[in-house]
Design a protein around this nucleic acid. Sequence first.
DNA 1: TCTTGACTTAGAGTTAACTCTAAAATTTAT
DNA 2: ATAAATTTTAGAGTTAACTCTAAGTCAAGA
Lengths: 141, 141
Amino acid sequence: MGYSIGEVAKKTGLTTHTLRYYEKEGLLPFVRKSGSGLRVFSDNDLGWLAMIECLKDTGMPLKGIKQYIDWFSAGDATLSQRLEMFKNHKAKVQEQIKQYQNNLKKIDFKIKLYEKAVELGNLDQAIQDPAIEELRQKIYK
Amino acid sequence: MGYSIGEVAKKTGLTTHTLRYYEKEGLLPFVRKSGSGLRVFSDNDLGWLAMIECLKDTGMPLKGIKQYIDWFSAGDATLSQRLEMFKNHKAKVQEQIKQYQNNLKKIDFKIKLYEKAVELGNLDQAIQDPAIEELRQKIYK
DNA sequence: TCTTGACTTAGAGTTAACTCTAAAATTTAT
DNA sequence: ATAAATTTTAGAGTTAACTCTAAGTCAAGA
């Protein structure tokens, strides 16, 4: 019914150090302690860790995640703040995805360019290549 | 024909401090200096900054970017390393985008959940809601 | 010319997010 | 019962990427 910090580390891929650090930062206020002081993680705590991972991996700083957890702990009076936070974060993530996709085009161009350059053994000649030039126009129009 | 560090800062949104820091880290080896020691950026340097921004914004550490610049400076003998680098980075960026899109689904679910919770004034009731529960199943199947 | 603002360097300081250490206590395996 | 592994705390150390300071030099406008 409960997991040790080591078990949770294995499950999540985080280290035990990082889990304790998260707790210290107020990100895991629901983790229980056994009589002798060992942390006992519940499935609910694993759910919180998954949420933390989701927000962290999409670029939210730990402070922002803590704010959410604090709002959660404050109860239903903060429902609208939490909704706002998720809406704002969604917009940021969508913006991020767009930027990634745009940058991916530039990286793709570089790959085409360097494939040609490797073929010719010469970067300058590859840059001169009409097909490469046409691609360049498309991306940096 | 040339831009001062302040002009480049305005153009790129970076600070002059950051531009000098990048230079110190070996990311801008082509920037010239005037007779009296002032940096003079060329359009080519702005192109390098755009490339740096592209790689940085897609998660490449400055050390990785420096490696690319060092390879570039070494000439055509390193063409294949540069091609490899871009291919590897492309794969990472694609992986990132996938993860972002997946996390976006989770965030979307939270938005739906909190919209319902705000409507009801109660999170627990929103969690009980059949439509919400169905959505949850879809995402955390 | 004077002054104001931009630029120079070297180097110190900051922030976020870990990452590690040490010494002691607890738990698990034999 | 004992050895080995895991966990505890407090606190120090690390890394990346800035960010700022100080003291001096340079440049443009009145």
